[in-house]
């Protein structure tokens, strides 16, 4: 990520929202602890460490221990937020996530930081565009991909509130605060419609949501009415919102993730077995070449214009 992008006026790093929320939670709930694998700075948990030094467990660069210790802390009555780069907390510790967290069904909150292609030039070892596909297989693991600072705060609060395993995917890519009706509420498993529309539906999450809104705005000027649904919860899916999307006759999904098995795959599973309509899944094809995060998104058409074009093409496929 370029320095220029991170300082863009009116844009935010959702990690700041995560850090502020977890500190506020810890103030009022003594059970809250954080677990890190030398990932204090990258999780923006320096402030938490200063305020609650006894309640931060740093296991060292050891992701299997990181995740398993989270499970153990939950056994001991804590509410652990286990935070590390999304590529490592998932891929490196996958069997701990499966057996110790999901299958054991424990009250642990996994925070996958700097997900997607945020690490840009560092390359696919550090990208996390497989995480949702991997984790979606664990049926009882709640998956949340917040789109902006407010939703990140809400996701962390909701994760703390519920009793059970949760994964929250927190981006370091700068995103604007989304415009919402006052009094908007976040609920796990409930999608939010940010733009009404009837010709097609764009289903997005995370850093792609604001781009989807911009694409819908551009399409409106051409007379195309595109709905934008922010599907922040990937598990459990809001199947009613997907059924309603199918009613518009064309669906485009977009996510900062592989096109294999993520949000697009999840929506396609529902659509294929209920009400098949033309659909397009946008994301990354797999391992990507060297480039900044912004460059990679441009390169693969994950832009306002790219989304708008995909919507036009998908509408054209309507019978």
């Amino acid at each position: 990520m370029s320095a220029a992008a991170s300082k863009k006026e009116g844009y935010f790093d959702c990690r700041d929202s995560f850090a502020a929320t977890i500190e506020a939670l810890a103030e009022r709930d003594p059970r809250i602890v954080t677990v890190v694998s030398d990932s204090v700075g990258s999780s923006k948990l320096g402030g938490f460490k200063k305020k609650f030094p006894e309640r931060m467990v740093n296991v060292g660069i050891a992701e299997q221990t990181l995740v398993a210790v989270g499970a153990g802390l939950a056994n001991g009555g804590k509410v652990p937020f286990v935070s590390a780069a999304s590529c490592f907390i998932t891929g490196r510790a996958m069997e701990q996530v499966k057996a110790d967290i999901a299958y054991s069904n424990v009250n642990v909150k996994l925070i996958g930081q700097s997900s997607g292609v945020a690490y840009g030039e560092l390359g696919p070892t550090h990208h996390s565009i497989e995480d949702l596909a991997w984790l979606r297989l664990f049926n009882n693991l709640t998956l949340i991909v917040p789109a902006d600072p407010w939703q990140t705060e809400q996701a962390i609060l909701a994760a703390a509130e519920m009793d059970g395993p949760v994964f929250v995917r927190v981006s370091r890519m700068p995103v604007p605060a989304l415009a919402r009706a006052t009094g908007s509420k976040f609920a796990i498993g409930k999608a939010e419609t940010l733009v009404e529309g009837s010709d097609a539906t764009i289903i997005a999450n995370g850093t792609m949501v604001h781009r989807a809104v911009a694409a819908a705005t551009a399409l409106r000027s051409e007379g195309i009415s595109a709905r934008v649904v922010n599907m922040a919860t990937v598990n459990p899916l809001d199947e009613a919102a997907i059924a309603a999307a199918a009613e518009t006759g064309a669906i485009v999904t977009i996510e900062e993730h592989s096109v294999r098995g993520g949000l697009g795959g999840a929506v396609a599973e529902i659509i294929a077995s209920t009400n098949p309509v033309p659909m397009r899944i946008m994301g990354f094809p797999g391992f990507v070449p060297t480039g900044s995060a912004e460059w990679l998104m441009e390169h693969y058409g994950l832009t306002d214009a790219g989304i708008a074009a995909a919507v036009r093409q998908t509408i054209a496929r309507k019978k």
């Binding site: 006894e54 309640r55 221990t65 802390l73 001991g76 701990q96």
Partner: peptide, 26 residues
């Protein structure tokens, strides 16, 4: 206390339990 089967899982989980006890001075 925790679901096991795959090897090498028990000690790390037990370590987390022990850390919880350590934090609480239990």
């Amino acid at each position: 206390e925790t679901n096991t089967g795959p090897l090498g899982h028990g000690l790390p989980v037990a370590t987390g339990i022990a850390i919880a006890g350590q934090i609480d001075n239990a």
